[in-house]
Amino acid sequence: MDNLGSLNAFVQAAETRSFTTAGKQLGLSSSAIGKAVARLEERFGVRLFHRSTRTVTLTPEGALFLERCRRIFCEIEAAELELSQTLSEPRGKLRISLPLVGMLMMPTLSAFMRAYPDIELDLDFTDRLVDVIDEGFDAVIRTGKASDSRLMTRVLGRFRFKLVGSPDYFAERGVPETLADLSTHRGLRHRYPSTGKLEEWPLAARRNGAVSEPPTAATSSIIEPLVYMAEQGLGIACLPDFAIREQVEAGILISVMEDAVRNSCIFRVLWPSSRQLSPKIRIFVDFMAERLFSDPHSLRLASVRTGPGSA
């Protein structure tokens, strides 16, 4: 950096033909400019200027050196411009981890790809907890609380679970009105593929603390079969509201006992904390926060297999 400062002093002096004017432009004294030039002359072993009491003029060696210095500063400016464009324009690969239920986000992710074609999405769907930094993810989307102090976080939206079944199923089995009524129904349950455990339904506990979930009729590690089986009248499923919004609106599924479902969940996007947030991550976070829950059709079952995620 000291060398660049000396080179800049030389260029300014050569272009203005004055140490005093060059000093004013750089906020230095004329003697400081003279010393910088003298250091260059001593280093290179050539005289760069002819000096007089009134003016300074370039020697042949100085003129040659000036052209080289101009090229150096042009290259520096070009490098700064390229870096500035890289930092300001979203582009490059973006590695994102999503829960299996993230398959339901494909309409929003597809819209993001259309809006930012220079960003290459690398999507990893899993229900396991990932180490965002150690595994090299740019961002992750998860439910639940954010506990890693190394990460920044932003809430994307909230959702609730609903107990749903088909009209034909409830016509045959009856509509449950209490937690005890669930014991006579058929449960369509989600099973975590990574652990094999069944996901608990977020139901209010009975007064005696007994479990309220119905006997299991079928399990699945992904959501689509549960939705399909519920539509076919094969049992009751406990599903995220965004996964069955269209079916409920169309009357294909009926939501029951809504007061018994006791909690809601939050979708968050998390990314490594950094003073310089890259444009591609900033754009992705803003886009998902603005779009994911704003459009009633932005979260829906895609034409491919989907599945519920976990925190």
Rank of each mutant, 00 (worst) to 15 (best):
V132Y: 03
I223E: 08
R114Y: 09
R142L: 08
T126C: 07
A180C: 10
S194E: 13
M152A: 10
E61Y: 13
D131E: 13
E290Y: 08
E246K: 15
V56G: 06
A311T: 12
T184S: 10
F159V: 04
S84H: 11
R160E: 14
L40R: 08
R245Y: 02
I33W: 09
Q276F: 07
P296G: 03
R150Y: 00
M105Q: 12
L104A: 10
R282D: 07
R305E: 14
L109K: 10
L299P: 07
D181N: 01
S30A: 08
R114I: 08
N3M: 12
R282V: 00
T59V: 05
S310N: 10
G187W: 14
W271V: 00
E172S: 15
T178H: 00
F293S: 04
V130S: 09
S194I: 02
P193I: 10
E200F: 05
L87T: 02
G92E: 04
D127T: 06
I96R: 05
V46P: 01
A38I: 11
I244A: 06
V140W: 03
T178D: 02
G5S: 05
R173W: 12
A115S: 07
E67N: 09
K145D: 14
T16S: 15
A180L: 14
L48M: 11
L299S: 13
W201P: 01
G235P: 01
S294C: 09
E246G: 14
T126S: 15
A302N: 03
S110P: 08
V261S: 03
M113S: 15
P225D: 07
R158N: 15
A218T: 00
T21F: 03
V304W: 08
A111R: 15
P296N: 02
L234M: 11
S6E: 13
L299G: 13
A204E: 10
A237F: 04
V56D: 03
R186Q: 08
R189G: 01
S52R: 06
A217W: 04
E199V: 15
A243Y: 04
A260C: 05
